[in-house]
Simulated assay, not measured.
Amino acid sequence: MLRPAADGPSVIVCSTCRHGEDAREDDEGVRGGARLAGLLRGLARSESVYARIAVEEMPCLFACKEYCAVHIRAPGKVGYVLGRFTPDEAAARAILDYAVHHAASAEGRVAYADWPEGVKGHFLVRVPPPGFVAE
């Protein structure tokens, strides 16, 4: 059931997430999570600023009511689950921009002033790293 994943900064995308609040798939029959994962991977491959961020897929993050959910994580840092994204390039870019700031932070805390506009209002859960809790 488990498979090895990148051990550095990463964005884990729910590949089975719905496309939106009212639609499971888009007009082409693609789920929102799969569409978002493709956009994230494309940006990560084509823009060097995102080269350190691994983009990985996982079926179901169990955030089904929130659709298009992602988990931003890095070793030894507080991680975050975000959702309710429209699976488009703007959302993918905002997610990766936040992941870059997150990876550069000491403990996973990114100053609000550095949050891309596209992630504001999308945070669902804060996840402490193994062996720690946040203060």
Rank of each mutant, 00 (worst) to 15 (best):
His71Lys: 13
Phe62Glu: 13
Val133Trp: 11
Pro128His: 06
Tyr67Ser: 11
Ser46Asp: 15
Ile12Phe: 05
Gly29Asp: 04
Ile53His: 02
Ala34Cys: 12
Arg109Tyr: 14
Gly76Asn: 08
Val125Met: 12
Tyr67Gln: 12
Met1Asp: 14
Ile72Glu: 03
Gly131Cys: 10
Tyr80Asn: 04
Val127Ser: 05
Thr86Phe: 11
Pro75Leu: 09
Leu43Arg: 05
Gly83Leu: 03
Gly118Phe: 05
Ala90Tyr: 11
Leu61Cys: 05
Ile72Ala: 00
Ser10Asp: 10
Arg93Leu: 09
Ala6Ser: 14
Leu96Arg: 00
Ala34Phe: 06
His19Ile: 03
Leu61Trp: 02
Val110Tyr: 01
Arg73Pro: 03
Pro59Thr: 10
Tyr67Val: 11
Pro75Tyr: 04
Ala54Tyr: 07
Leu43Cys: 08
Leu124Ser: 05
Ala54Trp: 06
Ala37Thr: 12
Ser46Phe: 14
Leu124His: 04
Leu96Thr: 00
Leu96Gly: 00
Leu124Val: 04
Ala51Asn: 12
Ala99Val: 06
Gly83Asp: 04
Ile53Pro: 02
Ala103Cys: 07
Leu36Thr: 01
Arg84Pro: 06
Val49His: 15
Val119Leu: 03
Arg52His: 13
Glu21Asn: 10
Cys14Glu: 04
Gly108His: 02
Ala37Glu: 13
Arg18Met: 10
Ala6Leu: 07
Glu25Pro: 03
Val78Pro: 02
Val125Asn: 09
Ala106Ile: 14
Glu135Lys: 09
Ala44Val: 06
Ala103Phe: 05
Ala90Asp: 12
Leu40Ile: 10
Ala104Phe: 02
Ser15Val: 13
His19Gln: 14
Thr16Arg: 06
Arg73Thr: 12
Cys64Pro: 09
Arg45Gln: 14
Ser10Pro: 05
Ile72Tyr: 00
Ala44Lys: 01
Leu39Lys: 02
Val119Ala: 03
Asp27Thr: 13
Val13His: 02
Tyr112Trp: 14
Glu89Ser: 15
Cys17His: 03
Ala103Asp: 09
Val133Ala: 12
Val127Tyr: 06
Leu36Gly: 00
Glu117Asn: 09
Ser15Tyr: 07
Lys120His: 11
His122Phe: 06
Val49Glu: 15
Ala34Gln: 08
His102Trp: 02
Val110Arg: 00
Gly131Tyr: 10
Ala94Phe: 08
Tyr98Thr: 03
Cys14Tyr: 04
Pro87Thr: 08
His101Glu: 14
Gly29Tyr: 06
Arg93Gln: 09
Pro130Glu: 10
Val110Thr: 04
Ala91Asn: 06
Glu66Lys: 11
Lys77Val: 04
Ala63Pro: 08
Phe123Tyr: 10
Trp115Lys: 05
Leu2Trp: 14
Val30Gly: 03
Val81Ala: 09
Asp7Arg: 14
His102Thr: 03
Pro128Leu: 05
Ile72Thr: 00
Ile53Ala: 04
Ala92Arg: 03
Pro130Asn: 10
Ala34His: 06
Gly79Asp: 06
Gly131Lys: 11
Gly118Lys: 06
Ala44Cys: 10
Ala44His: 01
Glu57Ser: 14
Ala104Ile: 01
Pro87Phe: 07
Arg35Asn: 09
Glu56Cys: 07
His122Ala: 08
Pro116Leu: 04
Ala51Val: 10
Val49Ser: 15
Leu43Thr: 05
Ser48Cys: 09
Ala90Pro: 08
Lys65Glu: 15
Ser48Arg: 15
Pro87His: 08
Ala54Met: 10
Lys65Val: 15
Asp26Met: 09
Glu47Leu: 14
Glu28His: 15
Gly29Glu: 04
Gly38Trp: 05
Arg73Glu: 13
Gly108Met: 01
His102Arg: 00
